[in-house]
Amino acid sequence: MPIVTLLCLIAIWEALVRWFGIQSWLLPAPSEIGRMAIEWRRELAWHSAVTLYETAVGFGLSLLVGIPLAVAVVYSRILQNTIYPILLALQSMPKVAIAPLLTLWIGFGALPKIIVVFLVCFFPIVVATTSGLATVRPVFLELVQSLCATSLQVFIKVRFPSAMPSIFVGMKIAITLAVIGAVIGEFVGAQDGLGYLILISSTQSRTALAFAALVLLTLMSIVLYYAIEILEHFVAPWGARR
């Protein structure tokens, strides 16, 4: 059904552009975008790969740092009181404002983009993991407590698996933000990536190419999102059942 709706919208778009004879630099017809995408497929593939790389690395880093930090926060009252306000402050800062600074400090490579992606993904992952770890069903804890389990056993056998569905919720929110983060980074200063391509082609009035890049970005987001959903299906299927 969503595909049918989408096709209808594209058809209407095409018809309107042709009917009113709208200039291609203002609003290109879908057929024009398609033609452009095929013509520029090499460049599009390369820039997509760059953006995908920045997104994936930044997202991966946020998991690598965010999940252990959430564990630390759950087990330490002091960390909870000291780190959480800082996290919140960090989250409240607009990443668009941080991006130019990162470029200033680090330069034009992939690293500043990876850091922006990391920053936007970090917060949802920490918050979701923390809440997952903190809201284990009391009877599960009572059960392992009655078995004289050590805190490490409680963590491995109950707390962490219990938190998995929550962690996946955080990951799904984060991954949709991740692609946006990469594009923000590329907008500020870059030599490649889909964000860079959009910026350059719209300043050069190659609007169809900008649209093609935009479509690819959207597709990338959707594919990544479903990749995580599929991963969840194999790793933590009990979350989706609840």
Binding site: R137, V139, F140, E142, L143, S146, K157, V158, P161, M164, A236, W238, R241
Partner: peptide
Amino acid sequence: GIVFQEPALLPW
């Protein structure tokens, strides 16, 4: 050994 009112089986 303890049995609770709910089975409390770990879903994973």
